[in-house]
């Protein structure tokens, strides 16, 4: 039997009387893109925040390669190999593109409290940063200030930051949001390559992208999992049609 890279076991989270996640179970396996869809407020982003350690669950467990990480801090989980992007692009805008990569490489290696080594003279980091930028086609903007980048380029930078962590899994929260059709297609092609490196848990509202990418789709509604399956199963599920997809699908 295949062992999941990520296992969510009976995860619950409430904000006052509102149940954001209710007794959720979910697995993410190697070489797969698992899309999480659902209406706004269904608890998708809350789930990503709990997996990445930015939010503490009320109950339930999270396992990364069978290790219980439920009580680990966000930074510890990142070093363990959980790489994420944010719903709204979250990069260091006042840094150059390459310095964002340098930051994440030294974060990954854990030497970030060193007060004396000159990070700008570390050739290994520079070389690795350029390799990562090459994957997302940003090498020509390596020395640009991030604040001058377009929205699409910031998204690409976030992907390269996630890649730099040598991840065991990717958590991508609405990576196509705000992208035009060409950029979305580039992102889709990129994700297809990335899933070989590490499985992807993808939150996305753009159903075209979801159906183009996802090996498996899970649907959340009011914090509960209402369906899980492949594209065909999800499209034909009457409950999913009712709460999310509508009649046109």
């Amino acid at each position: 039997m295949k062992k999941p890279v990520l296992k969510i076991d009976k995860l619950s989270k409430s904000f006052g009387a509102i149940k954001a996640n209710d007794n959720l179970n979910l697995n993410l396996f190697r070489n797969e893109i698992h899309a999480l869809i659902g209406p706004n407020g269904s608890g998708k982003s809350t789930l990503v925040k709990q997996i990445s350690g930015f939010l503490k669950q009320d109950s339930g467990q999270i396992y990364l390669e069978e290790i219980d990480i439920s009580n680990c801090s966000a930074e510890h989980r990142s070093r363990m190999g959980i790489a994420r992007s944010f719903q709204i692009s979250s990069v260091i805008n006042s840094f150059k593109v390459i310095d964002n990569l340098r930051l994440s490489l030294m974060g990954r290696d854990g030497g970030y409290l060193n007060p004396l080594n000159n990070i700008y003279r570390n050739k290994d980091y520079s070389d690795e940063a350029f390799d990562l930028l090459n994957i997302v086609d940003l090498t020509n903007k390596a020395n640009d200030l991030v604040s001058t980048l377009s929205h699409g380029d910031k998204r690409k930078l976030e992907i390269s930051l996630a890649l730099s962590m040598k991840p065991k899994l990717f958590l991508f929260d609405e990576p196509m949001a705000g992208l035009d059709k060409i950029s979305s297609q580039l992102m889709i092609d990129l994700f297809k390559k990335l899933k070989v490196k590490a499985p992807i848990l993808l939150i996305e509202h753009d159903m075209e992208s979801v159906f183009a990418l996802a090996d498996r789709i899970s649907v959340l509604d009011y914090g509960s999992l209402i369906a899980s399956g492949n594209e065909k199963e999800i499209k034909s599920n009457s409950k999913v049609q009712e709460v999310y997809l509508g009649d046109e699908n």
């Binding site: 990445s52 930015f54 801090s73 966000a74 930074e75 510890h76 990142s78 070093r79 790489a83 994420r84 944010f86 979250s90 990069v91 260091i92 805008n93 930051l103 994440s104 974060g107 990954r108 854990g110 970030y112 930051l161 730099s164 962590m165």
Partner: peptide, 10 residues
Amino acid sequence: NEDRVRSVGI
């Protein structure tokens, strides 16, 4: 950006 910093293991 503390969130970004934490998400790269710092």
